[in-house]
């Protein structure tokens, strides 16, 4: 597989370089870090599994409540270097999502605001290719939170394991005839995708567990469909 279907090609090294002169020091350091180029083989890339838990799906109305990061390569998932942070959103946390995330009001009350942890987050992410499952959530929420905190956008290359599943299963929505015959669509949700690779079932919706689940899924996808020699540029977006 060479390219994602329907993905606009972004020249990420050029974009990163273009923002290295940001007036915000932490952002400048982040963008100015040593980033791999598109030709780098997957086997040599340092990844960072990233998962956000949020109070809802709309980045304009909802907020980030927790962030999980786990660095990894195709050889090792460094769960021993995992990083987890609860953040205090603007406004109140919606009661129904409290149970959903297993995070209590008291956890939230004691937590720092996103702006206070942004610098540390950027240090962790610098030079590492972020890996997410369904990039719209991570991208939109980080963008929104960064705009609020420092008035600048935060955009970087990611590998989206859900996009890879979507590309691997282009016919996942069966046509009307097959649907009539009872064929089920192929789910590309994180838990369902993992099952196709023999990965265990995890308790969902904890940022760290989901980050681990995503890291394992990418290793499984590369081991199954690609190789360590696959160009990074074929998979990032």
């Amino acid at each position: 597989m060479k390219r994602h279907s329907g993905q606009p090609s972004v020249d990420w090294p050029q974009y990163m370089a273009s923002r290295a002169s940001s007036p915000h020091a932490a952002l400048a350091r982040f963008y100015g870090a040593a980033w791999p180029d598109a030709e780098t083989p997957m086997g040599e890339v340092e990844f960072m599994a990233l998962d956000l838990e949020t109070t809802g799906l709309d980045a304009r109305r909802h907020a980030i409540v927790s962030i999980g990061l786990i660095p990894f390569t195709l050889h090792r998932i460094r769960s021993d270097q995992a990083w987890y942070q609860v953040v205090r959103p603007q406004g109140d946390l919606l009661p129904e999502s409290v149970a959903f995330h297993h995070i209590t009001h008291s956890d939230i009350r004691q937590a720092p605001r996103f702006g206070e942890i942004l610098e540390e987050l950027l240090e962790k992410l610098a030079g590492k290719v972020a890996v997410v499952h369904y990039r719209n959530v991570e991208r939109n929420f980080l963008e929104q939170a960064a705009q609020q905190a420092v008035g600048e956008s935060l955009l970087f290359p990611v590998i989206d394991t859900m996009q890879i599943e979507a590309d691997l299963n282009p016919q996942r929505q069966p046509g009307w005839l097959l649907r009539l015959l009872g064929k089920q669509p192929i789910s590309i949700r994180l838990a369902d995708s993992r099952l196709r690779y023999g990965l265990p079932v995890y308790q969902a919706h904890h940022a760290l567990t989901d980050a681990l689940a995503t890291a394992e899924l990418l290793q499984a996808q590369v081991a199954t469909h690609f190789s360590p020699q696959q160009r990074l540029g074929d998979l990032w977006c």
Partner: peptide
């Protein structure tokens, strides 16, 4: 548990 690292192996490898 904190010190554990993880890796996936495809069947047959």
């Amino acid at each position: 548990a904190r010190q554990v690292q993880v890796r996936y192996f495809k069947a047959g490898t």
